[in-house]
């Protein structure tokens, strides 16, 4: 199997498109999901600022968003991309549905990381006169850093796999190549190359996440 220069150029573009779709969506998903995850933990009945009604409503909204299959969400949200970005096709347009799908997912991932913290440590901070904000910034987030990084790798790989589906609705990236050439045109070689590229990307993201988590974790000695 040999690839001409045009094919290689296409793959390069695909990799770049995937990279920036995933990077931008992950960033935006954390901008939304991180605060939501913190709110979910803090407003719980045993949290530092119990607000059961807020917790319940937020939890329900997140579950609702998470239960919509991504492919369906893509179709629903694309008109919004048209409004915000001006187009409903191509990689930039995919950032909007990816962010909307990943935001609630990130919120749950962050929530589960923050719940790992020992309540005694939070209690100790309170006994020293820490405010809610100080507990979040100086205790919850730094103490959960290793777990948040592992969660980050999980979230980014999920966003990567979502981004591959974007090919079905005119999005770009490596996934789109696999779908457009491999699936629609029966070019098995190109499909497998695309799949391998995706696998490698997942491996790299996972490895970076795990390494950063382990390296920064002061509990392991």
């Amino acid at each position: 199997m040999t690839f001409d220069a045009a094919t290689i150029q296409m793959l390069k573009t695909g990799i770049w498109e995937t990279f920036y779709m995933v990077f931008l969506s992950s960033l935006l998903a954390y901008v939304i999901g991180l605060p939501l995850g913190i709110v979910l933990v803090c407003t719980d009945t045993d949290g530092i600022h119990p607000m059961p009604a807020v917790q319940k409503i937020l939890g329900t909204v997140i579950n609702l968003l998470r239960s919509v299959p991504f492919l369906i969400l893509l179709f629903i949200v694309l008109p919004l991309s048209k409004m915000v970005i001006g187009t409903r096709i191509g990689s930039p347009a995919m950032v909007i549905p990816l962010t909307i799908a990943a935001g609630p997912y990130v919120a749950r991932v962050v929530e589960s990381s923050l719940r790992e913290i020992d309540g005694g440590v939070v209690e100790a901070a309170k006994s020293m006169g820490a405010s809610d904000w100080q507990i979040i910034w100086k205790v919850l987030l730094p103490e959960c850093r290793p777990s948040l990084l592992v969660g980050g790798a999980l979230a980014v790989t999920t966003i990567l796999s979502y981004s591959a589906m974007a090919g079905f609705v005119g999005g770009g990236g490596v996934g789109a190549i696999a779908i457009n050439y491999g699936y629609y045109r029966y070019e098995a070689g190109l499909m497998w190359v695309s799949v391998v590229l995706l696998v490698v990307m997942v491996q790299i993201i996972q490895e970076i996440g795990m390494r950063m988590s382990r390296k920064g974790d002061k509990r392991i000695r």
Partner: peptide, 10 residues
Amino acid sequence: FQQFNLLAQR
């Protein structure tokens, strides 16, 4: 405290 409750990452 009984369980010390130190910040593990500090």
